[in-house]
Design a protein around this nucleic acid. Structure first.
Lengths: 114, 114
DNA sequence: TTATATACATAAGAAAGTTGGGTATAAAAA
DNA sequence: TTTTTATACCCAACTTTCTTATGTATATAA
Protein backbone atom coordinates (compact mmCIF):
# COMPACT_ATOMS: atom_id res chain seq x y z
CA UNK A 1 0.00 0.00 0.00
CA UNK A 2 1.22 3.52 -0.47
CA UNK A 3 0.67 6.59 1.65
CA UNK A 4 -1.11 4.44 4.17
CA UNK A 5 0.44 3.09 7.30
CA UNK A 6 -3.10 2.03 8.07
CA UNK A 7 -4.46 -1.14 6.55
CA UNK A 8 -2.04 -3.55 8.10
CA UNK A 9 -4.22 -6.55 8.62
CA UNK A 10 -6.93 -5.58 6.17
CA UNK A 11 -4.98 -6.64 3.08
CA UNK A 12 -5.88 -10.28 3.59
CA UNK A 13 -9.54 -9.35 3.85
CA UNK A 14 -9.33 -7.31 0.67
CA UNK A 15 -7.75 -10.19 -1.25
CA UNK A 16 -10.28 -12.72 0.00
CA UNK A 17 -13.26 -10.48 -0.68
CA UNK A 18 -12.16 -9.63 -4.22
CA UNK A 19 -11.70 -13.32 -4.92
CA UNK A 20 -15.15 -14.05 -3.59
CA UNK A 21 -16.59 -11.60 -6.09
CA UNK A 22 -14.40 -12.50 -9.02
CA UNK A 23 -13.88 -16.22 -8.66
CA UNK A 24 -10.38 -16.06 -10.13
CA UNK A 25 -7.79 -13.29 -10.21
CA UNK A 26 -4.05 -12.89 -10.62
CA UNK A 27 -1.81 -10.69 -8.52
CA UNK A 28 -1.31 -7.81 -10.87
CA UNK A 29 -5.04 -7.75 -11.54
CA UNK A 30 -5.73 -7.33 -7.84
CA UNK A 31 -3.46 -4.31 -7.58
CA UNK A 32 -5.19 -2.72 -10.57
CA UNK A 33 -8.69 -3.46 -9.27
CA UNK A 34 -7.94 -1.84 -5.93
CA UNK A 35 -6.43 1.19 -7.66
CA UNK A 36 -9.57 1.45 -9.81
CA UNK A 37 -12.03 1.08 -6.95
CA UNK A 38 -10.29 3.71 -4.85
CA UNK A 39 -9.52 6.07 -7.70
CA UNK A 40 -5.80 5.70 -7.17
CA UNK A 41 -5.92 6.40 -3.47
CA UNK A 42 -4.88 2.95 -2.35
CA UNK A 43 -2.02 1.29 -4.18
CA UNK A 44 -1.16 -2.19 -3.08
CA UNK A 45 2.56 -2.70 -3.37
CA UNK A 46 3.88 -5.93 -4.81
CA UNK A 47 6.12 -6.36 -1.79
CA UNK A 48 2.99 -6.59 0.34
CA UNK A 49 0.72 -8.43 -2.08
CA UNK A 50 2.78 -11.42 -3.15
CA UNK A 51 3.86 -12.48 0.34
CA UNK A 52 0.22 -12.14 1.44
CA UNK A 53 -0.98 -14.33 -1.43
CA UNK A 54 1.67 -16.94 -0.69
CA UNK A 55 0.74 -16.97 2.96
CA UNK A 56 -2.97 -17.39 2.22
CA UNK A 57 -2.12 -20.22 -0.16
CA UNK A 58 0.11 -21.89 2.43
CA UNK A 59 -2.75 -21.66 4.91
CA UNK A 60 -5.04 -23.42 2.47
CA UNK A 61 -7.29 -20.45 1.75
CA UNK A 62 -6.31 -20.15 -1.91
CA UNK A 63 -5.35 -22.42 -4.78
CA UNK A 64 -3.36 -21.44 -7.81
CA UNK A 65 -3.45 -22.20 -11.48
CA UNK A 66 -0.84 -20.97 -13.93
CA UNK A 67 -1.80 -19.72 -17.37
CA UNK A 68 0.14 -18.54 -20.39
CA UNK A 69 -1.31 -15.36 -21.89
CA UNK A 70 0.58 -13.69 -24.75
CA UNK A 71 3.90 -15.29 -23.78
CA UNK A 72 3.44 -14.01 -20.26
CA UNK A 73 2.84 -16.15 -17.20
CA UNK A 74 -0.15 -15.43 -15.02
CA UNK A 75 -0.78 -17.09 -11.68
CA UNK A 76 -4.50 -17.19 -10.99
CA UNK A 77 -5.73 -17.51 -7.44
CA UNK A 78 -9.11 -18.78 -6.30
CA UNK A 79 -10.76 -19.47 -2.96
CA UNK A 80 -10.76 -22.94 -1.46
CA UNK A 81 -13.67 -24.03 0.71
CA UNK A 82 -11.76 -22.92 3.78
CA UNK A 83 -11.10 -19.66 1.98
CA UNK A 84 -14.81 -19.16 1.38
CA UNK A 85 -15.53 -19.55 5.06
CA UNK A 86 -12.65 -17.24 5.92
CA UNK A 87 -14.10 -14.41 3.81
CA UNK A 88 -17.18 -14.13 6.01
CA UNK A 89 -15.15 -14.37 9.17
CA UNK A 90 -12.69 -11.68 8.12
CA UNK A 91 -15.44 -9.44 6.81
CA UNK A 92 -17.43 -9.43 10.03
CA UNK A 93 -14.25 -8.98 12.05
CA UNK A 94 -13.34 -5.94 10.00
CA UNK A 95 -16.84 -4.55 10.04
CA UNK A 96 -17.13 -4.82 13.79
CA UNK A 97 -13.72 -3.24 14.18
CA UNK A 98 -14.70 -0.30 11.99
CA UNK A 99 -17.92 0.04 14.00
CA UNK A 100 -15.92 0.18 17.21
CA UNK A 101 -13.60 2.74 15.69
CA UNK A 102 -16.59 4.94 14.92
CA UNK A 103 -17.85 4.60 18.48
CA UNK A 104 -14.48 5.78 19.75
CA UNK A 105 -13.80 8.54 17.27
CA UNK A 106 -17.28 9.85 16.63
CA UNK A 107 -19.41 9.94 19.79
CA UNK A 108 -22.41 11.08 17.71
CA UNK A 109 -22.22 8.04 15.52
CA UNK A 110 -24.97 5.42 15.62
CA UNK A 111 -24.94 2.29 13.48
CA UNK A 112 -27.01 2.69 10.37
CA UNK A 113 -27.20 6.48 10.56
CA UNK A 114 -24.79 7.45 7.81
CA UNK B 1 -5.40 -3.61 20.99
CA UNK B 2 -6.54 -7.12 21.74
CA UNK B 3 -8.28 -9.65 19.54
CA UNK B 4 -7.73 -7.24 16.72
CA UNK B 5 -4.75 -7.27 14.45
CA UNK B 6 -6.74 -4.88 12.30
CA UNK B 7 -5.72 -1.43 11.16
CA UNK B 8 -2.39 -0.94 12.81
CA UNK B 9 -1.72 2.72 13.09
CA UNK B 10 -5.16 3.69 14.30
CA UNK B 11 -4.05 3.67 17.93
CA UNK B 12 -2.32 7.03 17.53
CA UNK B 13 -5.46 8.50 16.05
CA UNK B 14 -7.54 7.13 18.91
CA UNK B 15 -5.23 8.65 21.51
CA UNK B 16 -5.14 12.05 19.81
CA UNK B 17 -8.88 12.18 19.31
CA UNK B 18 -9.70 11.24 22.89
CA UNK B 19 -7.31 13.94 24.10
CA UNK B 20 -8.99 16.47 21.86
CA UNK B 21 -12.30 15.70 23.51
CA UNK B 22 -11.05 15.41 27.06
CA UNK B 23 -8.27 17.94 27.25
CA UNK B 24 -6.27 15.86 29.69
CA UNK B 25 -6.09 12.13 30.25
CA UNK B 26 -3.73 9.58 31.77
CA UNK B 27 -2.80 6.25 30.24
CA UNK B 28 -4.91 3.95 32.31
CA UNK B 29 -7.88 6.24 31.81
CA UNK B 30 -7.50 5.91 28.05
CA UNK B 31 -7.62 2.12 28.18
CA UNK B 32 -10.76 2.28 30.30
CA UNK B 33 -12.47 4.85 28.08
CA UNK B 34 -11.89 2.73 24.99
CA UNK B 35 -13.16 -0.37 26.76
CA UNK B 36 -16.28 1.57 27.80
CA UNK B 37 -16.96 3.05 24.37
CA UNK B 38 -16.65 -0.31 22.64
CA UNK B 39 -18.41 -2.31 25.33
CA UNK B 40 -15.30 -4.32 26.01
CA UNK B 41 -14.68 -5.21 22.40
CA UNK B 42 -11.46 -3.28 22.02
CA UNK B 43 -8.92 -3.52 24.80
CA UNK B 44 -5.84 -1.42 24.41
CA UNK B 45 -2.92 -3.26 25.90
CA UNK B 46 -0.41 -1.38 27.99
CA UNK B 47 2.41 -2.75 25.89
CA UNK B 48 0.92 -0.91 22.94
CA UNK B 49 -0.36 2.19 24.71
CA UNK B 50 2.63 3.41 26.68
CA UNK B 51 5.15 3.20 23.84
CA UNK B 52 2.63 5.01 21.64
CA UNK B 53 2.20 7.79 24.21
CA UNK B 54 5.96 8.14 24.60
CA UNK B 55 6.40 8.33 20.86
CA UNK B 56 3.73 11.01 20.46
CA UNK B 57 5.35 12.97 23.26
CA UNK B 58 8.80 12.63 21.66
CA UNK B 59 7.32 13.91 18.42
CA UNK B 60 6.00 16.96 20.20
CA UNK B 61 2.31 16.09 19.88
CA UNK B 62 1.72 15.67 23.61
CA UNK B 63 2.95 17.18 26.85
CA UNK B 64 2.84 15.55 30.25
CA UNK B 65 2.14 16.61 33.77
CA UNK B 66 2.52 14.33 36.74
CA UNK B 67 0.00 14.32 39.57
CA UNK B 68 -0.23 12.53 42.88
CA UNK B 69 -3.67 11.08 43.54
CA UNK B 70 -4.19 8.93 46.64
CA UNK B 71 -0.49 8.10 46.90
CA UNK B 72 -0.53 6.96 43.31
CA UNK B 73 1.27 8.65 40.45
CA UNK B 74 -0.68 9.69 37.39
CA UNK B 75 0.88 11.00 34.23
CA UNK B 76 -1.54 13.26 32.45
CA UNK B 77 -1.17 13.87 28.74
CA UNK B 78 -2.52 16.83 26.76
CA UNK B 79 -2.27 17.97 23.16
CA UNK B 80 0.32 20.52 22.12
CA UNK B 81 -0.46 22.92 19.28
CA UNK B 82 1.19 20.52 16.84
CA UNK B 83 -0.88 17.78 18.41
CA UNK B 84 -4.07 19.72 17.80
CA UNK B 85 -3.23 20.02 14.12
CA UNK B 86 -2.28 16.39 13.97
CA UNK B 87 -5.70 15.28 15.22
CA UNK B 88 -7.44 16.68 12.15
CA UNK B 89 -4.81 15.28 9.82
CA UNK B 90 -4.98 11.78 11.32
CA UNK B 91 -8.77 11.85 11.45
CA UNK B 92 -9.22 12.68 7.78
CA UNK B 93 -6.53 10.15 6.84
CA UNK B 94 -8.36 7.46 8.74
CA UNK B 95 -11.77 8.51 7.47
CA UNK B 96 -10.64 8.48 3.87
CA UNK B 97 -9.00 5.13 4.43
CA UNK B 98 -12.17 3.64 5.84
CA UNK B 99 -14.10 5.11 2.91
CA UNK B 100 -11.73 3.45 0.48
CA UNK B 101 -12.06 0.19 2.34
CA UNK B 102 -15.83 0.37 1.91
CA UNK B 103 -15.44 1.02 -1.80
CA UNK B 104 -13.31 -2.09 -2.11
CA UNK B 105 -15.25 -4.40 0.15
CA UNK B 106 -18.79 -3.22 -0.45
CA UNK B 107 -19.43 -2.31 -4.09
CA UNK B 108 -22.95 -1.16 -3.16
CA UNK B 109 -21.63 1.33 -0.65
CA UNK B 110 -22.02 5.06 -1.26
CA UNK B 111 -20.74 7.71 1.13
CA UNK B 112 -23.44 8.99 3.44
CA UNK B 113 -25.79 6.08 2.90
CA UNK B 114 -25.49 4.28 6.23
C1' DT C 1 -3.61 -13.58 52.43
C1' DT C 2 -4.45 -13.64 47.93
C1' DA C 3 -6.59 -11.77 43.95
C1' DT C 4 -8.17 -7.69 41.64
C1' DA C 5 -7.94 -2.88 40.45
C1' DT C 6 -5.20 1.06 39.77
C1' DA C 7 -1.01 3.05 37.56
C1' DC C 8 3.31 3.27 35.50
C1' DA C 9 7.05 0.98 32.50
C1' DT C 10 10.22 -2.06 29.46
C1' DA C 11 11.80 -5.86 26.42
C1' DA C 12 11.62 -9.95 23.25
C1' DG C 13 9.40 -11.48 19.50
C1' DA C 14 5.86 -11.74 15.70
C1' DA C 15 3.31 -9.77 11.99
C1' DA C 16 2.72 -7.05 8.23
C1' DG C 17 3.93 -3.61 5.95
C1' DT C 18 7.78 -0.37 2.84
C1' DT C 19 11.60 0.14 -0.08
C1' DG C 20 14.45 -1.36 -3.33
C1' DG C 21 16.16 -4.70 -5.98
C1' DG C 22 15.83 -8.66 -9.72
C1' DT C 23 13.79 -11.31 -14.00
C1' DA C 24 11.19 -11.17 -18.33
C1' DT C 25 8.07 -9.76 -22.37
C1' DA C 26 5.70 -6.20 -25.15
C1' DA C 27 4.34 -1.79 -26.58
C1' DA C 28 4.80 3.15 -26.74
C1' DA C 29 7.59 7.28 -26.64
C1' DA C 30 11.87 9.79 -27.13
C1' DT D 1 16.83 2.79 -31.76
C1' DT D 2 17.09 3.21 -27.29
C1' DT D 3 14.59 4.17 -23.31
C1' DT D 4 10.53 4.33 -20.72
C1' DT D 5 6.14 2.42 -19.40
C1' DA D 6 3.09 -1.41 -18.73
C1' DT D 7 2.48 -6.09 -17.72
C1' DA D 8 3.72 -9.99 -14.59
C1' DC D 9 6.16 -12.54 -11.33
C1' DC D 10 9.46 -12.75 -7.18
C1' DC D 11 12.66 -11.91 -2.87
C1' DA D 12 15.38 -9.66 0.98
C1' DA D 13 16.55 -5.98 4.29
C1' DC D 14 14.47 -3.02 7.12
C1' DT D 15 10.80 -0.53 9.90
C1' DT D 16 6.70 0.06 12.43
C1' DT D 17 3.42 -1.50 15.40
C1' DC D 18 1.52 -4.62 17.82
C1' DT D 19 1.37 -9.01 21.46
C1' DT D 20 3.02 -11.29 25.29
C1' DA D 21 5.36 -11.38 29.33
C1' DT D 22 7.47 -9.26 32.94
C1' DG D 23 8.50 -5.82 36.67
C1' DT D 24 7.38 -2.12 40.23
C1' DA D 25 4.10 -0.12 43.55
C1' DT D 26 -0.26 1.06 46.26
C1' DA D 27 -5.14 0.11 47.68
C1' DT D 28 -9.14 -2.55 48.09
C1' DA D 29 -12.07 -6.61 47.96
C1' DA D 30 -12.61 -11.61 48.45
Amino acid sequence: MSNNNLIKGSLQTIILKLLEENDKMYGYEITQRVKELTEGEIKITEGALYPALHKLEAEGMLTTEIQQVDNRVRKYYSLTKDGQKEVSAKMSELQSFVGNLQRILDPEWKPGLA
